[in-house]
Simulated assay, not measured.
Amino acid sequence: MHHQNDAQSDTRLVVPRHLAIIMDGNGRWAQQRGLPRIEGHRKGVERVKECVRTAAEIGVEYLTLFSFSSENWRRPQEEVDALMTLIKRFIRQELAELHENNVRVRVIGTADRVDPEITAMIADAHALTAENTGLRLTIAFNYGARDEIARAARRLAEEVARGAMRPEDVDMAALEQRLDTQGLPDPDLLIRTSGEVRLSNFLLWQLAYAELMFVEDYWPDFDREAMVRTISAYQNRERRFGGLSARRTA
């Protein structure tokens, strides 16, 4: 119960308005402990719940989590099936609490290959939380950034082809309005866990000026203390946005 007090007392912690996280390292966390990879994913789901609570407590307005990429279908079928089961369980068990805590849930990505039951559950989550005004939780599921950009470009091409817009009206703003993240501000900070130093096809357009932080912790170990520590380091960075300085200090 001391967590809330800690968050309130840390008055100098300047948090990112929009925090994006690549949750990496579940399988390696499990393997180091001699456990099946799925046990790492189960632990990772538990960490998601704590992450959402912490983000809301410390004042993050938008939280975007990379949960399942469109490339993850290449994993062993047994692992993919177990992941889908975990996703269903998470929605069933956590949606009511998220709604009760005024969290607005949004899932981005495509429905290709996704179990219709999961698609229906996602639609229900969108509908139930659509009017909530607290933390905006976006989950990237069956998502790939290059595919997202290609789909947005296709929509623009279709609109030009049918005469709904002129080619000269196709600009950055027009494309952004057709991305899965339409309506969300760009992330201020991206955190990737597990020591890997790459974006892995995540939010390639939206991360143009984000601060990038790569931490050694595996996702199941990335607890509240680790999140606050990482955001504290972000606070001391100087954001330039291509030239202008904007130091993140209180």
Rank of each mutant, 00 (worst) to 15 (best):
K43D: 15
R47M: 09
V48Q: 08
V48N: 08
V48S: 09
K49M: 11
E50I: 08
C51D: 00
R53Q: 05
R53D: 11
T54P: 00
A56K: 05
A56M: 07
E57A: 07
E57N: 09
I58S: 08
I58Q: 00
V60T: 00
E61M: 07
Y62A: 00
L63P: 00
L63Q: 00
F66L: 08
S67Q: 15
S69T: 01
S70W: 01
E71H: 07
N72H: 06
W73I: 09
R74V: 09
R74L: 12
R74Q: 13
R74T: 14
R74F: 05
R75K: 11
P76H: 12
P76Q: 07
P76G: 03
Q77S: 10
Q77L: 13
Q77C: 10
E78V: 14
V80T: 11
D81Q: 15
A82D: 13
L83T: 09
T85G: 13
L86I: 15
L86P: 06
L86D: 07
I87C: 15
I87M: 15
K88H: 14
R89H: 12
F90L: 14
Q93T: 13
Q93D: 14
L98D: 00
L98M: 04
H99Y: 12
N101L: 04
N101V: 02
N102T: 04
V103L: 06
V103T: 11
R104I: 02
V105E: 12
R106F: 06
R106M: 04
G109S: 11
T110D: 04
T110K: 11
A111Q: 15
D112M: 11
R113G: 07
R113L: 15
V114S: 05
V114Q: 10
P116F: 04
P116Q: 02
P116V: 08
E117Q: 15
E117K: 05
I118H: 09
T119V: 15
M121T: 03
M121D: 14
A123I: 06
A123V: 15
A123T: 12
D124I: 13
A125L: 03
A125K: 05
H126N: 14
A130W: 05
T133W: 09
T133I: 13
T133Y: 02
R136S: 09
R136K: 14
L137D: 01
L137G: 00
L137P: 02
L137T: 01
T138L: 04
T138Q: 10
I139Q: 00
I139T: 03
A140L: 09
Y143I: 02
G144R: 05
G144D: 00
A145T: 05
R146V: 05
R146W: 06
R146H: 10
E148G: 09
I149N: 02
I149T: 03
A150W: 13
R151Y: 08
R154H: 15
L156S: 08
A157I: 04
A157D: 04
A157C: 10
E158N: 13
E158R: 11
E159Y: 08
E159I: 03
E159Q: 11
E159V: 02
V160Y: 01
V160L: 06
V160M: 03
A161M: 10
A161F: 06
G163W: 07
G163C: 07
G163Y: 03
G163P: 05
A164D: 12
M165K: 04
M165Y: 01
R166C: 13
P167K: 06
P167F: 05
E168K: 07
D169V: 11
D169Q: 13
D171T: 01
